[in-house]
Simulated scan of single mutants.
Amino acid sequence: MAQKNKGGRPPALEANQKTLKQIKGLGQIQATTKECAAVLGVSEPTFIKFKKDNPEAAEVFDLGKEQGKASLRRMQFSAAEKGNATMLIWLGKQLLGQSDRQEISGPAGGAIEVEQITTWRELAQKGR
């Protein structure tokens, strides 16, 4: 027996294998919900509601995001292992708490002398 037509608009997205695979891929490249919606051809609120109504979609999106982060980290370490100085410095700062310090000193490493030339009040009194 055929199902009775419930009327209304058909859903813009279905939680089928093709859509879930696409959502996971979008998560892997850290796409925003707005970007995901554009790729899937729906509005951002529709995509957000779709994730809310379909826990599997939200799960694959989050899984994709985490896999993307792991992949990026793997590539960063690979670049560092190949001697990429910029990546070595960046990873050292991020993971090891290293930082750049710039110390400014006066002549012969001494203190910097500060001399006040004019105050704002003196400038105002002179009409400048």
Rank of each mutant, 00 (worst) to 15 (best):
A2F: 03
A2H: 00
A2N: 08
Q3S: 13
K4W: 07
K4T: 13
K4P: 10
K4A: 15
N5T: 02
G7E: 12
G7H: 06
G7V: 04
P11A: 15
E14T: 14
E14P: 04
A15D: 06
N16L: 07
Q17V: 14
Q17S: 15
K18W: 01
T19R: 13
T19Y: 08
L20A: 10
L20K: 10
K21V: 11
K24V: 01
K24E: 15
G25Y: 00
L26A: 02
L26Y: 00
L26F: 05
G27D: 07
G27M: 11
I29P: 00
Q30W: 10
Q30D: 03
T32P: 04
T33K: 10
T33F: 11
E35N: 01
C36A: 15
A38R: 06
V39N: 02
S43E: 15
S43I: 02
S43R: 00
T46E: 14
F47L: 08
F50I: 06
F50K: 04
K51A: 12
K51N: 14
K52D: 09
K52N: 11
D53N: 13
D53C: 03
N54T: 14
P55N: 11
E56I: 12
E56Q: 15
A57T: 12
A58W: 02
E59H: 14
V60N: 10
F61Q: 14
F61E: 14
D62H: 11
D62V: 06
L63W: 06
G64F: 12
G64P: 09
E66G: 03
Q67H: 12
G68N: 11
A70H: 05
A70F: 03
S71M: 14
S71T: 12
S71A: 15
S71H: 14
L72D: 02
R73G: 01
R74E: 00
M75Q: 13
Q76D: 02
F77P: 03
F77Y: 15
F77I: 05
S78D: 14
A79L: 14
E81L: 15
E81F: 14
K82Y: 06
G83L: 12
N84H: 10
N84I: 01
N84R: 02
A85V: 09
I89F: 08
W90I: 03
L91C: 03
G92K: 04
G92I: 01
K93W: 03
K93Y: 04
L95M: 11
L95K: 00
L96K: 07
G97V: 03
Q98M: 08
D100V: 09
R101K: 11
E103A: 05
E103V: 10
S105W: 05
S105I: 05
G106M: 01
G106K: 04
G106Y: 06
P107I: 03
A111C: 01
I112Q: 00
Q116S: 10
Q116L: 10
I117H: 07
T118P: 04
R121C: 01
E122N: 06
L123D: 09
Q125P: 02
Q125W: 00
K126T: 05
K126E: 13
K126H: 03
G127D: 07
